[in-house]
């Protein structure tokens, strides 16, 4: 078996700041990996580079598609990369406004990816949208409402439904629970966990919430100053942190 996504020796500098400094990372099919670290550690940059949204200055990102062929994400032509992004991948943004079309109804938001994939049957698109709203625990009767009518947690669920409707193999999430209150966070994490298990998705997500990482991730990658300082199974990293920075990070979680 080969990894589904592989970052090799990635480097990216923002003037004097090394956002990524020789970072290598592999994600395996069906695996959930959390990237944790403080603000400015390069974790979001790493996610964007791996997802093909930002180009690295050195190194490459390989994606192994369903047929097993390796594709260099940043060497693809733009049309191919866009097809890949909406057929095989999903991206859940921290702010639902970045991932949703705020002027388009909930059903339209979910249906957009289907239409982009060539769906031209209105009835089928609506059925799929209603089905996915139910799967993310939203009321399908509200599918013609605009996203602004929904709460923050619901917008996030909508964003997840929109990503998953085309059955991607790989989903990127950037702080999917950021900015939500604790009880909403817990339910959203629960939902993500069950969907991921059910669909066998590979997920790469960025968080600064250690609890979220513990709940969702199989494996945790700790970043600091653009480098991966520690990497291992989630419970190993959290229960027996080796690197001083990871120890600090784990120790600073507030116990309720």
């Amino acid at each position: 078996m080969s990894p589904i996504l592989e970052g090799q020796n990635l480097a990216l500098r923002f003037v004097a700041v090394r956002a990524l400094d020789d970072v290598s990372l592999a994600l395996w099919p069906g695996e959930v990996v959390a990237i944790v670290g403080e603000s400015g550690s390069g974790k979001s940059t790493l996610l964007r580079v791996l997802a093909g949204l930002a180009a690295p200055q050195a190194g490459r990102v390989l994606y192994h598609d369903a047929d097993g062929a390796a594709q260099d994400v940043h060497a693809l032509r733009e049309a191919e990369r866009r097809t890949l992004m909406r057929r095989d991948w999903g991206f859940v943004h921290q702010n639902a406004r970045d991932g949703l079309r705020m002027g388009v109804s909930a059903g339209g938001n979910i249906g957009e990816r289907l239409m982009a994939a060539g769906g031209r049957h209105y009835g089928n698109i609506r059925t799929a949208a209603a089905e996915w709203m139910a799967r993310v625990e939203m009321d399908p009767a509200r599918m013609d409402e605009a996203p602004r009518n929904f709460s923050g947690g619901m917008q996030q669920r909508l964003q997840i439904a929109r990503c998953l409707v085309t059955r991607p193999r790989l989903v990127f999430m950037d702080e999917p629970t950021g900015g939500l209150d604790v009880s909403v966070q817990a339910r959203l994490l629960d939902l993500i966990r069950s969907l991921v298990a059910e669909l066998g998705l590979a997920v790469l997500f960025v968080t600064h919430d250690i609890a979220a990482a513990r709940l969702l991730a199989h494996r945790i990658v700790v970043m600091r100053h653009g480098r991966i300082v520690e990497e291992g199974l989630a419970d190993r990293v959290l229960d027996d942190p080796q690197h001083p920075y990871t120890q600090l990070l784990v120790a600073s979680v507030l116990a309720a």
Binding site: R101, V104, S105, G108, M115, Y122, R126
Partner: peptide, 9 residues
């Protein structure tokens, strides 16, 4: 196509 979907909806 999304716009058209919205119109019909």
């Amino acid at each position: 196509q999304v716009k058209l979907y919205e119109d019909i909806a």
